[in-house]
Amino acid sequence: MRREAQLLIGVAAFFGLTDITYWLWGNAQGGATNLDTGFGGVVMLVGTILLGVVPGSYYFWWSRRMKPRPEDRMDATIEDGSGTIASFPDSSVWPFVLGMGLFLTVLSLVFGLWLMWPGLSLVVSAAVGATVESRRGGRV
């Protein structure tokens, strides 16, 4: 997990530096980062910092508390990671139903709001269907 954490923290660090530079430089150069010009960029870069620092610090916290996984070790053999990897869903129609439900819902904004009824019904039935499917199939 250590490399993964470093990667995400690195994202945050780089954009932290970029954001401060951008903002201060913009202020120094006649307000190119004012509210009515480029301030949006300052805000979006803060969002990017969060994207790195939130999962990154979580991974970092964990990476110091857990033993390296087989995929983190250079000397791990395939046997070290044998057994159950994870559980995966089998064929399922619900992603299709959910996708078409969202499609109809979105189209209803152009072709008439009545389309939202079939659309949202599909979305709800897909949510229920996928949940039931997961429970019946065991742990996911």
């Binding site: 057994g83 159950t84 990897i85 994870a86 559980s87 995966f88 199939g137 996911v140």
Partner: peptide
């Protein structure tokens, strides 16, 4: 249905799998 994926060390036969075919598979 949920399938538990195994990581076999070395097996002769691929994991048995039956799924829908044709348009239903898509």
């Amino acid at each position: 249905m949920t399938v538990l994926a195994q990581r076999p060390v070395a097996v002769e036969h691929p994991e048995h799998h039956e799924g829908p075919t044709g348009i239903l598979k898509w």
